[in-house]
């Protein structure tokens, strides 16, 4: 049984076709990278999956349940977690409170008290290495710390599917390697399917994903095992216009 199925999703903004008949299947515990140049429709795809937008056409099936019309807040408890391309922390709340929100309203909603959630938050804050900042206001973190905080917040939701929008953009290569190791560890441990969106970080794609989906102008161009996808001539052409191993 697929964890998530997108069937022929189309989404337009005014005259602009941000997603054009995109289908995708994600299995439990899979690691997928979605790549594509600016404006390819990656963030829109995430917004459709997490319920920020409704698709114009097509269906979204999560664990055999049609969630196409389900509002975002009802999807989260089913097992969705996500981070944002531009981090969106709850600025005036502390890091600990931010992450606790994930625990409180994610898939554990109704099963954990406020105190439990704070404890869960502490665990994930430690996991992403932000212990020293946990009582700081989230708004005062550096951009990279904000990304890590969002990561902890999304993980505290105990998702079955984790959507990471450009989690590694702007990171130092050393941090990227660490992030990749971290994601793999998480995936093994918690059996989370991770869909990570990476733009110009080829290194991460290669290190991370089992499968790569390449998007271009709202359409799915390629969807294949990582090694195959990266040697596809069409991919090389569209994506950066240079061979992938140059950036390794």
């Amino acid at each position: 049984m697929a964890l998530l199925k997108l069937e022929n999703i189309t989404k337009t903004f005014g005259g602009l076709m941000a997603l054009n008949d995109v289908s995708l299947e994600i299995e439990h515990g899979e690691l997928i990278a979605i790549v594509g140049p600016n404006g390819a429709g990656k963030t829109t795809l995430f917004n459709i999956i997490s319920g920020v937008y409704r698709p114009d056409k097509g269906k979204i099936i999560f664990e055999e349940r049609d969630i196409t019309r389900m509002p975002a807040y009802k999807r989260a408890p089913l097992g969705f977690g996500r981070t944002f391309q531009i981090p969106r922390p709850f600025n005036s709340a502390t890091v600990r409170e931010n992450v606790a929100v994930g625990a409180m309203f994610g898939s554990l909603a109704g099963k954990v008290s406020v105190d439990d959630s704070l404890e869960i938050a502490d665990r994930y804050i430690e996991l992403v290495g932000l212990e020293a900042h946990k009582d700081k206001e989230a708004g005062s973190l550096t951009p990279v710390e904000k990304k890590m905080m969002e990561m902890a917040r999304a993980l505290a939701m105990k998702p079955k599917l984790l959507l990471m929008d450009e989690a590694m953009a702007g990171m130092h290569p050393k941090d990227i390697d660490e992030m990749v190791r971290f994601l793999k560890k998480i995936k093994e441990k918690e059996n989370i399917a991770v869909v990570s969106m990476v733009e110009h970080v080829m290194r991460a794609v290669v290190g991370l994903a089992e499968r790569v989906m390449v998007m271009h102008q709202g359409s799915k161009l390629v969807d294949a095992k990582t090694e195959e996808a990266l040697t596809e001539p069409r991919v090389i052409e569209v994506y950066l216009g240079r061979p992938p191993d140059e950036s390794k």
Binding site: Y73, F90, F105
Partner: peptide, 9 residues
């Protein structure tokens, strides 16, 4: 909007 995505009604 982020609140909604985090599961908050």
């Amino acid at each position: 909007d982020a609140a909604k995505v985090m599961g908050i009604n």
